[in-house]
Design a protein around this nucleic acid. Structure first.
Lengths: 213, 213
DNA sequence: AATCAATGTAAAAGCTATTTACATGAGCTG
DNA sequence: CAGCTCATGTAAATAGCTTTTACATTGATT
């Protein structure tokens, strides 16, 4: 984070030049430090070196800034998942494993984004952009679930949508409960990654899909 | 909720008589309405009909009230889970199914408790009471996992602790993502209960445990 | 060069959190 | 029952946040 303490006071004239971006960065940093609840519009402004009223030229209110952070988070999340999944190449299991690890990696590396996305209780209604970004991220899980279902015994093939939701719930459950170092609310007998991998393997076996050893 | 709008203004003298309790109730109600972030110490005081400074006689600060709500939540949660599990009576599968439903039922019926418990980012350090209450709730899942593992083929019997964590992650994932009506961030092809039941059945099959039909 | 629109600022109103000094009265003590 | 004390409330003050409004500045456009 090269911008973590310096550019906030880079000399500037009356106009900031890139305030919107600066506010998004400041918000992200502040959320990382104090959680979505502790983050303050005024402090983000201070961070950017502008008056407390300036942010209102770029965001309707504090909540819209938070929603913008979440939006950016979903976009990065979708990109990270898509890159990890890589359309299932070179073959399903490796890609699927990468996908799970990427999920946890994102939650751990970007706890601020993750909590803005999933714990800030941002109302989806009236924010189609945000919903669509969330959908794009979910679409990756959905695509993986499709390929997973294809590996399943044709007799009792489950709906891919359901499987995608299951995978999501498992990943989110682990990321949310055990995935962020600071939140370490409980000491675990194994890493979140191992916990997730084991859980997914059991789930896959339940679906009748046997993992490559 | 018989106390939802009346007893807050029941005539009283200089002393409230039961302010601590009234504040806990007010906080719960306010969190239910506006989320843990929107809840305000001052408004809880107003709700109880006392001055904004009065609550400080009972809670160090706003966070301690929030933590007390979470504590009460964990206690009720533990009780609800324990009652549902009922030590696995009359037989494992019925009890296990009840347990899962009770988990979701709690998250839906008491979203305020649930979010105070899991989404308010209350630091566990220095609050052993809270941690212990959480542990008591988890102990129920743990006990169920023990009995579950007993049903498992002895050859590859997984550690009960791991299984308990898996069950918890699955349940929390579904409750947190899909379990609260208001949060309805996504339309589902099935109810959270059915989604959870299907997921658990698949997981159990993966463990080599076959459900009674 | 004159003007406009975008982007900042200053100041104010109305919240909230929290502290401090003071008030009240319930219950114990003698 | 009188008196005292301590728990529990209140009032008032400080400090910070959010948001609005009226005004200032300046980069761009014509």
């Amino acid at each position: 984070m090269s911008w973590s303490k310096d550019d906030r006071e880079s000399p500037r004239g009356y106009h900031h030049g890139n305030l919107k971006e600066a506010l998004l960065r400041a918000a992200l940093e502040l959320i990382a430090q104090k959680g979505p609840a502790g983050f303050t519009f005024a402090e983000a402004a201070r961070w950017a070196g502008v008056s407390p009223a300036a942010p209102y030229r770029h965001f309707r209110d504090r909540d819209e800034l938070l929603a913008s952070v979440a939006l950016r988070g979903f976009n990065q999340f979708a990109a990270a998942l898509a890159q990890a999944w890589d359309d299932g190449r070179p073959e399903f299991f490796t890609a699927f494993d990468r996908l799970g690890k990427a999920y946890l990696e994102f939650a751990r590396a970007e706890p601020a984004y993750y909590s803005a996305m999933f714990e800030a209780a941002i109302p989806l209604a009236g924010n189609s952009e945000l919903r669509e970004a969330g959908d794009r991220a979910f679409a990756v899980l959905r695509a993986a679930a499709e390929k997973l279902c294809a590996q399943t015994p044709a007799k009792a093939r489950p709906p891919a949508l359901m499987v995608a939701l299951h995978i999501w719930a498992i990943s989110h459950g682990i990321a949310s409960l055990f995935g962020r170092g600071d939140a370490a609310r409980r000491t675990l007998p194994m890493s979140p990654e191992d916990l997730l991998e084991a859980e997914v393997l059991i789930y896959l076996r339940g679906l009748g899909v046997s993992a490559a050893t």
